[in-house]
């Protein structure tokens, strides 16, 4: 009987070892360990054994049963693992195929530049002021020390609607309006972005409509050196810490003294190249100390208050920053153009 059990064990283990599917394994379990299986049969015949032999064979039978069960279990785990692996292998995909595109648009490059400048000045305590694009001659010119017949009106040939109403030629009327409303109540610190219009034929460097962004600071004791310092901060933050600025005398009717600001050319590092037309400098903006007539007309006492103002063109800045060669691109809105400005920049 003992031999029979050992034989059964060997035979069962052999079969378990050879089993290749879970079903086969289950069949082995049923055939060896089931109620009608050979081990049960052996145990049934135990009545014929002596009292000494019975526990020995009983315990052996249990051991055999245990061993077979253990092997089946182990084999089952093996087979299950293999089945999963096989399934996963069948599920393999090509991870190099493109993912599902996430739709995303982007800001217009001019908005990008304007918001960058806005945020820079906001961090220095400026508010953003806006005003109408169609203006009164008074705010566009007269309040800015440009009376009718002033030769400087030629500098910005304008689109008039009537004798008194025109498309603003700069965003300076917003300054005039802000000052007038403000009436000497504490300091003024604003920047004014917006669209402006001039009688120019559209070509690679001219546009009858373009953007401007101007700044104005008025307080007691504002000095020209403060203007220089402010522009220095602006130039370094906007164009890079390694940039130098240079102020050149200029003329604007609403500021005195007036200057133009150049920054050192990034392309050639100041040695002179085609981008800076050999000068090593690139013109960025116009600025100056607010003309006393402008202060007085807006109700500020020019003996007590002083201020500075500056103005620049986002198109020009965008063209320099991104190397855009034709101002018309900003208004043509070719989608292949717009798509190039969607990245975040350092």
């Amino acid at each position: 009987m003992k031999e029979r059990l050992q034989e059964l064990q060997a035979e069962a283990l052999q079969k378990v070892e050879e089993a290749v599917s879970l079903k086969e394994l289950n069949d082995i379990r049923v055939s060896y360990l089931g109620k009608k299986g050979p081990i049960t049969e052996v145990l049934r015949g135990m009545g014929k054994l002596s009292a000494e032999e019975r526990p020995v064979i009983g315990s052996l039978a249990n051991e055999v049963r245990e061993a077979i069960a253990q092997h089946i279990e182990a084999k089952q785990a093996n087979l299950e693992e293999a089945a999963i692996a096989e399934k996963l292998a069948a599920e393999k995909i090509d991870v190099t195929l493109p993912g599902n595109p996430v739709r995303s648009g982007s800001k217009h490059p001019l908005t990008k530049v304007i918001e960058e400048i806005e945020d820079l000045f906001i961090s220095m305590g400026y508010a953003v002021a806006e005003g109408p694009e169609v203006e009164k001659d008074y705010y566009n010119f007269e309040a800015l020390n440009l009376p009718k017949g002033h030769p400087a009106r030629d500098m910005q040939d304008s689109f008039y609607i009537t004798d008194e109403i025109l498309l603003r030629t700069h965003t300076s009327p917003v300054q005039a309006r802000t000052m007038e409303k403000h009436q000497s109540k504490g300091p003024v610190k604003i920047i004014c972005p917006g669209k402006v219009y001039r009688r120019d034929n559209d070509d690679a460097t001219h546009s009858h409509q373009f953007m401007q962004i101007e700044g104005l600071v008025i307080d007691e004791n504002i000095r020209m050196s403060d203007l220089k310092g402010t522009l220095d901060v602006f130039a370094k933050k906007m164009f890079g810490e390694d940039r130098e600025i240079r102020l050149r005398p200029s003329f604007f009717p609403f500021t005195e003294p007036s200057v133009e600001m150049d920054i050192s050319c990034k392309v050639c590092g100041g040695r002179g190249c085609s981008v800076c037309k050999g000068t090593g400098w690139i013109e960025i903006l116009g600025a100056g100390m607010v003309h006393p007539n402008v202060l007085e007309m807006a109700g500020f006492d020019s003996k007590k208050y002083s201020g500075f103002a500056f103005g620049m063109g986002p198109e020009r800045i965008a063209m320099l920053k991104y190397g855009v060669d034709d101002i018309r691109h900003f208004y043509t809105n070719d989608i292949r153009f717009l798509k190039q400005f969607s990245k975040h920049e350092e």
């Binding site: 610190k189 403060d226 402010t230």
Partner: peptide, 12 residues
């Protein structure tokens, strides 16, 4: 090169 020394006004 200086920066304005003035009463702080809220920007934004």
């Amino acid at each position: 090169v200086t920066l304005p020394v003035a009463e702080t006004v809220p920007g934004g």
